[in-house]
Design a protein around this nucleic acid. Sequence first.
DNA 1: ATATATCCTGACCAATTGGTCAGGATCAAG
DNA 2: CTTGATCCTGACCAATTGGTCAGGATATAT
Lengths: 214, 214
Amino acid sequence: MAWARQARRNGSKAAIREGNEKAILAAAEEVFADYGFAGATTSKIAEVAGIPKANLHYYFPTKEALYRQVIENIFNIWLAAAASFDDCDDPIEALTQYIHIKMDISRTHPKGSKVWANEIIQRAPMIQDYLETTLREWTTSRVAVIERWIAEGRLAPIDPRYLMYMIWATTQHYADFGHQISTLNNDHDLSEAQFAKAKDTVTQIILRGIGAIK
Amino acid sequence: MAWARQARRNGSKAAIREGNEKAILAAAEEVFADYGFAGATTSKIAEVAGIPKANLHYYFPTKEALYRQVIENIFNIWLAAAASFDDCDDPIEALTQYIHIKMDISRTHPKGSKVWANEIIQRAPMIQDYLETTLREWTTSRVAVIERWIAEGRLAPIDPRYLMYMIWATTQHYADFGHQISTLNNDHDLSEAQFAKAKDTVTQIILRGIGAIK
DNA sequence: ATATATCCTGACCAATTGGTCAGGATCAAG
DNA sequence: CTTGATCCTGACCAATTGGTCAGGATATAT
């Protein structure tokens, strides 16, 4: 996290603020993912970010505020990934794209995904409001789209919610359980080729499973 | 947790031991699931178990020993669930049964599943040895079975590992992310009927997805 | 140049934690 | 009934934690 130092050298107050906040958030994402909310310590986060603990508390008054920020970030990334539902009306294309993007996020943002998973496992003590507002609305609207596809006979008549859960579960598994997958891959992270194959396999099973393709 | 008290009334040393250990393990499973390893406190576990903290440490010398025991328990339950692979040689029947049993475990043992998930998310700091021995062997042997089915033309030629991950992810999602699912179900746990439908949907999508059924 | 707002930090504190221990209570064996 | 093993527990402790604060450093506006 040489960010902070560079920003400090840069000089401008605004740049310092931006650099430090970024470094702290990146460090926090990592430490929360590795130790959970309770296990993460603000001094460990500060250490990873390369600043003194007191300085961290200057930018984020409490550990909880920092945590919320980290969670909101990954959540927003996921929300944006759903653009495919709006962009195109072909179920094959829309779902393929959605699954692919979700898989890619698991590859590029595994830590954020883990922090989210941790929070949900513990029954969302900090972000229940998000689940009941944004996530609920998001889900309802996508379910409606899928239901229309089914009504048009383009998909088998499955309950869209369980399909959605399956997509979430399967794609996020590659982030949340990435360590288990690596261990079963002889202690190597999946190579690009392996990951591409996983992505393809997942997509095919699901699309074939809902009768979108043969 | 009236167990301990009852056992104490019972009297017999052996019964006392059994009752207390059971109560402590049940309490630990719950508290570890709700707060993570670091967030769980031995005094909270003791409180839930209905005994003084010092007594808990009489049975389990360290928090870590208790945690390992909880994890081993859920892991053994999952291992037993794989009997379907040995019991029958029809892929449709074997996979259907495996998925169903895994779903049922998510329903009956959600806490254990959560503790496991937490541990893996944090890169298995306590049970890496398990992953590298038991889980690795288990997986290899099941992969071989599925590969045979594919070679016999009974399944589409997918990589068995990614199928396995998909089954794990999807079934365990109903435990680990149960809170999210409930929230999206208007704050109600899935009813028996809903859960049965989810089970069915999951099974159908996967079996159809791998070309086992039409 | 100087005033002011922002940024930085070592030292500190109250609260909590995992774990210990001495000594008391209860059961089992002879 | 006595002796020894097992079980139980209040009181305690060293270590760690999230967060504070006074005062110093740096940038920016006028």
